[in-house]
Design a protein around this nucleic acid. Structure first.
Length: 568
RNA sequence: CGGGGUGUAGCGCAGUCCGGUUAGCGCACCUGCUUUGGGAGCAGGGGGCCGGGGGUUCGAAUCCCUCCACCCCGACCA
């Protein structure tokens, strides 16, 4: 491709709206333009990269037996009503205004299941892996970080259909392997975490994550290889346990202590002996939760314990209604009403605890959970913190932010049951199809690569995703016809040799060409200038290392090949 | 949805408090000449409903009301 004829509007200055490196560089290198919040146009250079990502994904999906579909983005709402997701998705789903009954699909479990119901009727028809690479629409409340979180984005979504849970395990593991292959080929450093199955229903789920301050997910990882989304992460921190002193329960006034910190500061209690009380309302029912004083409630864990995502902290009047006290004085003893109580595992059967007296301005101390009150249920409610020992070998946990690149998910039968997609087994018994669902954010792969591979000058592509393999810079061609002639013949020769070549034949000053080349970041630059050429030399530059090499013109093809293949 | 910020030429910005020539600067763009190995120089030139609407005023980019868009933090995120 001759750059003089190619639409690559590079920007010298960073657009003010872009905050993170990948967004800034995708704009500056002329790969994308924003059309509206969370909506991007891909320009030719960016689309080339996107297609490289897509091709890698397609090849790896085909390798595990995936069959590529193209499903419509415009969907009849009835199908979504049957699975209850019109309601559960709420505002995230776009609804068509001037044609009742149509929505824009945010994902495709329903549509896949619809087609499966039509034609997958026998155990002999399975297993199946169906996938597509297609545009999704989600009305994100707050798009951000360039293409990382958009209202319209390309997703590779795949769905497996099996006759048994063992079969689902096989399909799931195939996807896990395919995903590793995809992200490795793309050149992205990633890690895999155990994740919450959330409101999707289903059993097991893992997310493929890229560590990044721009990420919206938080993960707990450690050197032992432990890695989990913070929503489900556990640690091996030891329980509060029992102390030998067996003092009697004691009510004491705490007129100015509203928080655990107040108790610690004013009375010198140890933080971990304070039992923090939290009241939540889940599906309209109050729940009283006890946490170790310095711990934070993990709402996702609470959701899975309670089996509902409809929960919220109680309001002030509800606290008084159910416990008899305001926040800051709530505890396990003398509760005003008989409400469900769950305590965190770390408090199991503990004594010597301090907690509210359900009477404003009073606390109890020396509380013994086995003596003074009844705690019917202990669960893991807390959010792990950095530095705690992990559950593999006690290695300290690091808490990092991460971008979710992909998610694999054992769906089970939620959608097949809702939509009636069932099959007959060899004994003519009817069963719902057992499904899995597997997504990859295509633009995110591109953006994450750039986040991990850039410097102050621009992007540093590797061979797998680079928009072109070789960048020829012809310097001052209008003045030196020999430069132009050599550049053009090299350009043709490289193309014949099978390379994808971008040839900067623009009538621009050398400085502009150098800077644009570093910004665009094609791994191999071939710089053809008159001074070198008249001596029989040209220069090649490794974009990543910045190394330059002066090479005899008759050895240029060989040297390019060496440099190109050394880059990977 | 709550909080904060910004809308002035393709991009980056000044001007707005405190109303008053013809709205400015850098880059980019066009023409000519000179240049040419890390974003060249000189000369000339084009490009603006100052986000939209309404108001106040002799007069509004500037003051008031209102709507919109975009960015950031939070809430949310199958």
């Amino acid at each position: 491709m001759k750059q003089s004829e190619y639409f690559v509007p590079t920007l010298r200055e960073t657009p003010a709206d872009a905050q993170i490196p990948s967004h800034q560089l995708m704009l500056r290198s002329g790969m994308v333009r924003q059309l509206a919040s969370g909506i991007f146009s891909f320009l030719p250079l960016g689309f080339r990269v996107l297609n490289k990502v897509i091709n890698i994904i397609r090849e790896e999906m085909n390798k595990i037996g995936g069959q590529e579909f193209l499903l419509p983005a415009l969907n009849p709402i009835e199908i979504w009503e049957q699975t209850g997701r019109v309601e559960s998705m709420g505002d995230v789903m776009f609804h068509i205004k001037n044609r009742d009954g149509l929505v824009l699909a945010p994902t495709h479990e329903e549509i896949i299941t619809y087609h499966a119901k039509q034609h997958v009727k026998s155990y002999r028809d399975m297993p199946q892996i169906w996938y597509q690479i297609q545009t999704k629409f989600r009305n994100e409340p707050r798009p951000k970080s360039g293409v990382l979180r958009g209202r319209q984005f390309i997703m590779k979504d795949a769905y497996s259909m099996d006759t048994s849970w063992e079969g689902l395990d096989v399909s799931y593991n195939k996807h896990a392997e395919a995903y590793k292959a995809i992200f490795n080929r793309a050149g992205i450093k990633f890690f895999v975490v155990g994740a919450s199955s959330g409101a999707m229903g289903g059993r097991q789920s893992q997310e493929f994550m890229v560590e990044s301050d721009s990420g919206e997910d938080t993960c707990a990882i450690s050197d032992s290889g432990y890695a989990a989304n913070i929503e489900v992460a556990q640690s091996a921190i030891s329980a509060v346990g029992r102390i030998s002193d067996d003092l009697p329960l004691e009510l004491f006034p705490t007129p100015t202590a509203k928080t655990i910190d107040d108790l610690v500061q004013q009375y010198g209690f140890s933080e971990e002996r304070c039992a923090k009380s939290v009241v939540y309302i889940a599906d309209g029912q109050p729940i009283l939760l006890f946490m170790r004083g310095n711990d934070e409630l993990n709402e996702t864990k609470l959701q899975s314990i309670l089996g509902t995502s409809n929960l919220r902290p109680a309001l002030a009047h509800e606290l008084i209604q159910y416990t008899g006290a305001d926040h800051g004085s709530i505890g396990p003893i003398n509760l005003k009403s008989n409400i469900r109580i769950i305590a965190d595992n770390l408090l199991k059967d503990a004594n010597g605890l301090i907690s509210g007296a359900n009477k404003d301005g009073y606390h109890y101390k020396n509380i013994d959970f086995t003596r003074d009150c009844s705690i019917p249920e202990y669960q893991d409610l807390r959010t792990v913190k950095a530095g705690e020992p992990d559950i593999v070998d006690g290695s300290p946990i690091r808490v990092v932010k991460a971008i979710e690149l992909g998610h694999i998910f054992k769906l089970g039968t939620k959608y097949s049951e809702a939509l009636g997609a069932s099959f007959l087994d060899s004994e003519s018994n009817e069963h719902p199809i057992i499904m899995g669902s597997y997504g990859i954010g295509v633009e995110r792969v591109m953006a994450c690569f750039i986040e991990q591979h850039c410097d102050t000058a621009g992007i540093i592509w590797e061979n797998s995703l680079t928009p072109f393999h070789i960048h020829i810079l012809g310097l001052n061609e209008s003045k030196f016809p020999d430069v132009k002639n050599f550049a053009e013949s090299l350009y043709s020769e490289l193309i014949i040799a099978g390379y994808e070549v971008l040839y900067d034949d623009r009538n621009e000053s050398p400085g502009i060409k150098f800077n644009d080349a570093d910004l665009i970041g094609i791994p191999v630059q071939v710089i053809i200038g008159n001074k070198n050429l008249t001596q029989g030399y040209v220069e090649i530059k490794n974009r990543k290392t910045g190394d330059r090499k002066i090479i005899k013109t008759d050895e240029i093809m060989e040297e390019i090949k060496n440099l190109y293949s050394s880059i990977q």
